[in-house]
Design a protein around this nucleic acid. Structure first.
Length: 664
DNA sequence: GTAGGGTTAG
């Protein structure tokens, strides 16, 4: 055992004494001290020390003790040495106990009750114990006793209580305690107290009060600034977050990371990467947290050039996906979102440690890339050969897989097992998956019934799943019900109006089509122009709009497209004219269909890429039926793999078939 | 005693 050196204690000052070997602490029978040990005569060598030295010595032992049996042992020794009269030692003991999972009510409270003297720190240690477990009522009770005993609180007392108020979202009590604290004066200028108050107000959802606190603080540190930046970004106010960030007198890696991930969480991956670039220019070190945010930004962009770039950065910074579970899981998600599910699985396989994030990302990755069987089998493997328990997101992945794989019964079973076997209450998102599962299988009435009976309030996702299924199965009546709800939840989402209008168009209900168009005009909503992107070999992105002739190689593109249409028609392709939601001539419909942006992108892809390589296209809107059948045919006659990521999902076209099994 | 992270379906 190393001799302790805390608080001026030195072995040299205690002639003849050496710290006892660990084995000498074993002589106290365990059960005797289960609760409070009785006093016994001290061991001579140790107890001959002056009390102040003993105190320091025990505190150093307590600081180094991380297990309950060891703390019990020390407790015994403390009583035998007479140190149980020292508030300092007892405070440390209570703190060490509450840092473990020892319930405050049992052991720590007993020590507190038996203490001969109680000072503010001893009270605070127990209050903090309650606070750590989110037990606000007992925190405040004890604070009351403390005041009745005539003991003045210290800064720690208030930080513990404010933390508990934040955890419990109890704004009223938080404000009350804030006023109480003001009566004592002085505490308000304490940095820790100020920062904890900012955090409390943020957690309680009153950003205004948090900002006021921040503005009133006589001095601020990195934590004050970062807390507020995160609060702004969580409430989708990136402009305020950015303003604060730019005003920060100095920034550390955590502040930079908070800002980068703020952009990611607010679906601004481009901004996130720009800021990350600045972070690197400023030579700020990065860690797994930063990288996870950057990888997530790349995942949102979904372009493989970023995948390569970010993998290199990870390696340069010794953050290998093999050994770092956070980086590994983020990379799995990124590759999956770039449509490179094989690369995602390579990362997954190579990881030394996996957790529920790694498994969920991989399961979702398989599910959205048209490999439902792989997703389900990975789920079963996780249950069978690991101790990792699925969480709500894992079930989203599994249910999505069942839905895309048409496995209705299996989906129903898994959905039922969520609560029964895993204690996870299905939320509205899970119901959306079930509606999707039933809807894709053509069970539209059953899906509607499920929504009407669900115990949680349905949200836009649930009705959207139903509307999507109505598109696949052309059911304008149920579509009307779903759309009516969606127009309430998402009044400005153009896609829903378009979808309903397309369903009407497919059923030839042109009057209704016009009615929806009028509704859109009334709300000043415009259909987003269809746009597709193709990433060329060197990573440059080529953009195509529907009917676009602006590309420098437009003539060649048209030539390739005409040639392709010829070959497709020879093998039986017939344009799906229903996909045009305008009441125009068939000739015009054919012309409009041929101008769809993904077809232009495909033609350019064929023109500019090496033969045999996969053609990857990203599209801003949902792929139409005609383009879908066109791509199936194109993959067959050209022998090329085509991957299209539309705004809903991935389509992997190979040998004339799509991974989505024609349901999307 | 106080600040940053990765997985979510239509």
């Amino acid at each position: 055992m190393t001799a302790p050196t805390v608080r001026g204690w030195s072995p040299l000052r205690c002639r003849g004494f050496h710290a006892p070997p660990a084995s000498s602490l074993k002589f106290i029978p365990k059960q005797r001290f289960r609760h409070l040990p009785e006093q016994r005569s001290p061991a001579p060598a140790l107890w001959s020390l002056p009390l102040s030295d003993l105190e320091s010595y025990f505190v150093s032992l307590l600081n180094a003790s991380a297990t309950l049996p060891r703390l019990r042992q020390l407790h015994g020794l403390i009583y035998r040495s007479g140190l149980h009269q020292s508030c300092f030692v007892l405070t440390k003991l209570i703190r060490s106990l509450t840092a473990l999972d020892v319930p405050v009510e049992s052991y720590p409270k007993l020590i507190f009750r038996q203490a001969k003297w109680r000072n503010p720190f001893l009270y605070t240690a127990l209050i903090r114990g309650y606070s750590l477990r989110g037990n606000l009522a007992d925190c405040v009770d004890l604070y009351g006793s403390m005041r009745r005993d005539g003991i003045s609180p210290v800064t720690f007392t208030f930080t513990a209580i404010f933390k508990a108020c934040g955890e419990n979202l109890d704004l009223r009590l938080g404000e009350q305690m804030h006023c109480q604290m003001a009566l004592f004066g002085g505490f308000g200028s304490d940095l820790y107290v100020g920062n904890t108050l900012i955090d409390m107000y943020v957690k309680c959802g009153v950003l205004g009060s948090a900002r006021k606190m921040f503005d009133l603080m006589p001095e601020r540190d990195l934590i004050s600034w970062t807390t507020l930046i995160v609060a702004y970004s969580k409430s989708q106010d990136m402009a305020s977050a950015r303003r604060l960030f730019d005003c920060m007198p100095e920034k550390d890696a955590i502040a930079w990371t908070a800002m980068v991930t703020g952009f990611v969480q607010n679906s601004k991956p481009g901004e996130a990467l720009k800021l990350f670039d600045r972070m690197q220019t400023a030579r700020v070190s990065l860690d797994e947290y930063t990288l996870a945010g950057v990888i997530s930004a790349c995942a949102q962009l979904g372009a493989s050039k970023y995948a390569k770039w970010v993998s290199e950065i990870a390696e340069e910074n010794m953050l290998s996906p093999t050994s770092n579970v956070v980086v590994g899981s983020a990379l799995i998600d990124m590759y999956a979102k770039c449509g490179q599910v094989d690369d995602a699985y390579k990362v997954f396989e190579a990881m030394k440690e996996r957790n529920v994030y790694s498994y969920s990302s991989m399961i979702v990755g398989f599910a959205i890339n048209g490999q439902p069987k792989a997703a389900i089998s990975l789920f079963h493997e996780m249950l069978k050969s690991t101790d990792i328990r699925p969480n709500d997101v894992t079930f989203i992945g599994v249910l999505t897989a069942c839905s895309h794989g048409g496995m209705v019964d299996q989906g129903r079973q898994i959905f039922a097992s969520m609560e029964k076997t895993y204690g996870i209450l299905p939320n509205a998102d899970h119901y959306a998956c079930m509606v999707d599962l039933l809807g894709r299988a053509g069970k539209l009435t059953e899906a509607l019934e499920l929504i009407r009976k669900m115990p949680v309030e349905p949200h836009g996702g649930v009705w959207g799943a139903l509307l999507g299924a109505c598109k696949v199965h052309t059911d304008p009546d149920i579509a009307e019900i779903a759309a009516a709800q969606l127009f309430i939840f998402e009044p400005d989402a153009v896609g829903n109006y378009i979808l309903l209008s397309n369903i009407y168009a497919s059923s030839g209900r042109w009057d209704d089509v016009l009615r929806v168009r009028k509704l859109m005009r009334g709300k000043k909503l415009r259909k987003n122009p269809g746009c597709s992107w193709f990433e060329a070999k060197k990573g440059e992105i080529h953009e195509f709009f529907a009917g676009d002739t602006k590309h420098p190689r437009s003539d060649e593109i048209k030539q390739v497209l005409d040639e392709l249409v010829g070959r497709l028609e020879a093998s039986g392709y017939e344009p799906i004219l229903n996909s045009v939601a305008y009441d125009v001539s068939d000739k015009d419909k054919r012309r409009i269909l041929l101008g769809h942006s993904e077809k232009l992108a495909l033609a350019f892809g064929i023109l500019s890429s090496t033969s045999g390589s996969t053609i990857r296209i990203v599209k801003n809107l949902r792929i139409c039926e005609d383009c879908h059948s066109f791509m199936c045919g194109a993959s067959q006659v050209t022998g090329r793999d085509i991957v299209i990521r539309d705004n809903m999902r991935f389509h992997h076209f190979r040998d004339g078939a799509c991974s989505c099994r024609n349901f999307w």
